[in-house]
Nucleic acid binder design. Structure first.
Lengths: 129, 129
DNA sequence: TCTTGACTTAAAGTTAACTTCAAGTTGTAT
DNA sequence: ATACAACTTGAAGTTAACTTTAAGTCAAGA
């Protein structure tokens, strides 16, 4: 798979894909004799994984570390697991912060609706008098 | 209230408080005759609001717009409400993306646990033989 | 063969949100 | 009075994650 196809498939700019590779997130993308990238299925799965994790805000550095350990083999299993546990915990906190902000916004939006309703009634009363 | 007290109360660096003010998020902080800031209760409430919204990732620019409109009075009520609705929607999407990433991590962590358990059993069997 | 569009690189530029720095002023305790 | 911590400003520096630019190479169609 060429970079432009991967780009389309996962909706990630080609520049970003090359950037990820340079940053160490895709250490195994092969190139043909003329230097053009050919993404394997495994590469694509990594791209999809990276997209998901980045979408939740995991830093490049963390993903880099994780992927590096992955390619080091089974001796890094527990370390990799710990990274995922740590990041999951951060996501839980982040999700909860967002959730309570959503609830605060719900409350505020309701207040706005009430205030606006009152203002409209007042205008109506003025029209009639 | 002095800036250092506000900083302590809300756990926000003084530099960040001054930065917020410069960015237009705290347009009403008064200064005494020698130029030292004196935060009113209203200022503090804005600080708390900003902290909450920033904690969920709302951009400075959005908060700046909202606060500007607030100080323009009742004629901006519906526009302010719309900003909150838009930002709430973004937060909902963000929360859901994080939630599905958490679930994916749950699954992966479970897989790691199983894999590690198998590895440990294998080691044990080797020890015995 | 020539053009065109996709590919390559390294390096510089951008954006958001701080964070630090330099240089000076003020308030309080001894 | 003097030290010293906290305050002030404007400007420069930092970090993460892209994004753009410049300058070139490669492959396929007219």
């Amino acid at each position: 798979m060429k970079i432009s196809e991967v780009s389309k498939k996962y909706d990630i700019p080609v520049d970003t894909l090359r950037y990820y590779e340079k940053a160490g997130l895709l250490p195994n993308v092969k190139k043909n004799s003329s230097g053009i990238r050919d993404y394997s299925e495994t590469d694509c799965n990594w791209v999809e994984f990276i997209k998901c994790m980045r979408g939740a805000g995991l830093p490049i550095e963390v993903l880099k570390k994780y992927i590096k350990l992955f390619y080091e083999g089974d001796s890094t299993l527990t370390e990799r697991k710990q990274i995922l546990i740590d990041e999951r915990q951060k996501l839980i906190l982040k999700r909860d912060a967002i959730q309570s902000t959503i609830e605060r916004l719900n409350y505020k939006i309701n207040s706005y609706e009430e205030t606006i309703a009152v203002r409209e009634k007042e205008l109506l009363r003025q029209d009639k008098s």
